[in-house]
Design a protein around this nucleic acid. Structure first.
Length: 289
DNA sequence: TACCAGGTGACAG
DNA sequence: CTGTCACCTGGT
C-alpha cells in the first residue's frame, strides 16, 4: 500500500524516540516494525519517480493530514491489516503539525527549537502489555540495553513470525521460569515482570479494563502494580493508552526542566498535548548526545 | 576498579 | 512526606 501523510512523520526519529524498542532500520533504509502480532516493513519514498512507480502498480493509496507538505511511504500490508491495526498504531488521525503550531517561538524558544529538532515524531498507540513490560525493563537501562533485553524476551517466549519473534502474551510470559526471564538480562526487574505477567494472565488485573479509566485513575491503577512507579506508569499511559497529556519525567527531562524551566514545565499551556511536548524535549536532549 | 544508566520499593527521619 | 539506599547487568 501507499501511505501518504500530509503531516509530520519521520521514521528515523520515531524509531529513536525511546517510546518503542522494536523498530529496526533495514539496509535499504526501510524500517521493520513488530507490533500487534504483525511484522510490517515501511519505507519512505523520497523520490518523485519512485512514488510514481509505486503508484502505478495499482497499489491502494490512503491519505491523512492537512498540511501543505507530505511524506509518502510504501508499506507491505493490505487494507485489512492496515485498518485493523496500523492506522491507529501510527496515530494517523492526529495532526501533529497543528499541535506543533501551538508552540510560540517568542514565548518559549527552547521548546520551539526542540520541536524543530523533533518534528516528525508521533506518539504511537502501542499494546498495553508490551508497553508495560518494556518500560519496567527500562528502569536504569539505556536504550540499547532495553532493546537487547526485549529482543531476548521475545525470543524466549514469543511466537515466531516472518523470521521475527512477537512480543509474548501475558500467558506466554507467565509460563517462563524466573531463570528464563532473568537470562534476558532483566536483573532485579525479573520479579516485577513475573508478578505483573502472572496477575494479568490470571485475570486479577485487566489492562483492557484500565482503558475506561480517567487519566488520574489510570495512573493510580498502573502504579499499584509491583515495580511500577510514576515514571513507568506515565510512559505506559502515554505510549499504550495514548493519554496524550501525560508528561513522563525521567532523568533527561529533569535535566531539561532544571536547566531551562526552573524545574517545572508549564503544563497548563499545552494541555491536552503535554506528552507531545515531552517527546520533543526528550528527543532534543538525547539527540545532543 | 569503580561508577553510572530513561526507577522503584523499603525503609528512616 | 522527603531523603537515602540497594538492586541486576552491561558499558566505559
Amino acid at each position: 500500500m501507499i501511505l501518504e501523510v500530509h503531516d509530520d512523520f519521520d521514521l528515523k526519529k520515531i524509531a529513536e524516540s525511546g517510546q518503542c524498542f522494536r523498530w529496526n532500520e533495514q539496509p535499504d533504509g526501510s524500517y521493520r516494525v513488530i507490533a500487534g502480532g504483525y511484522v510490517l516493513n515501511i519505507r519512505e519514498l523520497f523520490d518523485a519517480d519512485e512514488i510514481k512507480e509505486y503508484s502505478g502498480k495499482d497499489n491502494d493509496i490512503v491519505r491523512y493530514g492537512t498540511a501543505d507538505f507530505k511524506h509518502t511511504f510504501f508499506i507491505n500490508c493490505g487494507k485489512t491489516e492496515f485498518y485493523d491495526f496500523w492506522e491507529e498504531y501510527l496515530d494517523l488521525k492526529t495532526d501533529y503539525s497543528k499541535i506543533r503550531a501551538k508552540i510560540d517561538k517568542a514565548e518559549d524558544d527552547y521548546l520551539f527549537r526542540a520541536s524543530e529538532t523533533g518534528k516528525g515524531i508521533r506518539i504511537l498507540k502501542q499494546e498495553y502489555f508490551e508497553t508495560l513490560m518494556t518500560f519496567i525493563i527500562s528502569q536504569r537501562k539505556n536504550i540499547p540495553a532495553i532493546r537487547a533485553s526485549v529482543e531476548k524476551l521475545c525470543k524466549a517466549a514469543g511466537i515466531e513470525k516472518d523470521g521475527c519473534y512477537l512480543f509474548p502474551t501475558p500467558e506466554q510470559m507467565a509460563s517462563l521460569s524466573e531463570d528464563e526471564i532473568s537470562a534476558c538480562g532483566t536483573g532485579y526487574r525479573t520479579k516485577y515482570l513475573m508478578k505483573a505477567a502472572k496477575d494479568i494472565a490470571d485475570g486479577e488485573v485487566s489492562l483492557e479494563a484500565f482503558a475506561g479509566l480517567s487519566d488520574a485513575e489510570l495512573l493510580t491503577e498502573l502504579e499499584k502494580l509491583y515495580g511500577v512507579g510514576v515514571k513507568v506508569a506515565s510512559c505506559t499511559a502515554l505510549f499504550a493508552y495514548h493519554r496524550m497529556d501525560f508528561f513522563p519525567e525521567d532523568v533527561w527531562i529533569k535535566r531539561v526542566l532544571a536547566d531551562h524551566y526552573d524545574g517545572h514545565f508549564p503544563l497548563e499551556k499545552y494541555t491536552p498535548w503535554n506528552g507531545v511536548m515531552q517527546q520533543y524535549l526528550f528527543f532534543g536532549q538525547i539527540s545532543d548526545k
